[in-house]
């Protein structure tokens, strides 16, 4: 059967694969015949993800890595096989009003959301670990692009910088036929959402701003990521794909 949406046979590295969107992406990609390389700081989380992957298909692997630690990232890149896909998905939230942001908050949020994916991607490219025609996908956000909500300024900043970096990758890495795109989700039902310290009432009010009247499930973001990894998107690069239930329209 002709299926340009297939990712069968591709080798794909996914960061933040121990939870949420990264975990869903790993599960779906493996179900679709890809070989996945899981990266996360949380070994338990990775193992939980692995347990939900068809383990009979050999070849899947994992690395427990702190992506904020450049030495650990260097040895990951040294060790890893050549990739057809990279999902830069790791990220953390922060809900401090601007005037209460501390330098340590900036270093953590920008460090993990912006700097870490940039260092990893640059190094993989430098060490020629991308196969020709590879696809890089970043999990960015609607925040910093369409929605600017109170106490989300630092997170927005980190994600708009990430979106901009993804576009620069599309321009510079095209010589090796590498594509680079972002998915930009609005609220997704994951740990990250739970860390936002919203009350039930605030969630109820917020969800009213979505034409679809619900938040996304992580699988719904994962499917958009898989599309961008597949050859079905072979002429799409430098794009920001909103996965937002229509939130940006309101």
């Amino acid at each position: 059967m002709y299926n340009p949406f297939s990712i069968s046979g591709k080798t794909i590295l996914i960061t933040g694969a121990g939870s949420g969107i990264g975990r869903s992406t790993a599960i779906i990609a493996s179900q679709m015949g890809a070989t996945v390389i899981l990266v996360d700081i949380n070994e338990e989380g990775i193992k939980e993800t692995l347990s939900r992957i068809d383990e009979h298909k050999a070849g899947h692997s994992y690395y427990v890595v702190d992506l904020m630690d450049s030495k650990e990232v260097e040895s990951l890149v040294e060790d890893v096989v050549c990739l057809d896909g990279l999902v830069n998905n790791v990220g953390i939230s922060n809900t401090r009003p601007l005037h209460l942001i501390r330098e340590e908050d900036f270093n953590l949020v920008v460090g993990l959301n912006t700097k870490a994916p940039m260092i990893l991607t640059n190094l993989l490219y430098k060490k020629k670990k991308f196969n020709k025609g590879a696809s890089i996908v970043f999990t960015s956000s609607l925040a910093g692009l369409y929605t600017f909500t109170p106490a989300n300024g630092l997170y927005s900043l980190s994600k708009s910088a990430l979106t901009s970096y993804a576009k620069s990758c599309a321009v510079e890495f095209a010589v090796r036929e590498i594509r680079s795109n972002c998915v930009n989700p609005s609220m997704v039902n994951t740990h990250l959402k739970e860390s936002l310290s919203f009350s039930e009432d605030e969630y109820k009010k917020d969800v009213e701003k979505y034409p679809l009247k619900r938040y996304a499930e992580p699988e719904e973001v994962a499917k958009a990521i898989v599309f961008l990894l597949s050859d079905a998107s072979s002429y799409i690069t430098g794009h920001t794909l909103l996965v937002d239930g229509g939130r940006s329209l309101k």
């Binding site: 401090r96 009003p97 501390r102 109170p150 106490a151 936002l196 009350s199 039930e200 605030e202």
Partner: peptide, 27 residues
């Protein structure tokens, strides 16, 4: 009073006393 006031209190209490209140504590 707004959600921004609420988040300011959460952050300020964290800075001042090292205690992390949740949205539900405020609620």
């Amino acid at each position: 009073w707004s959600s921004l006031t609420s988040l300011s209190i959460i952050a300020a209490v964290d800075d001042e006393f090292g205690i992390t209140l949740k949205g539900d504590d405020i609620r």
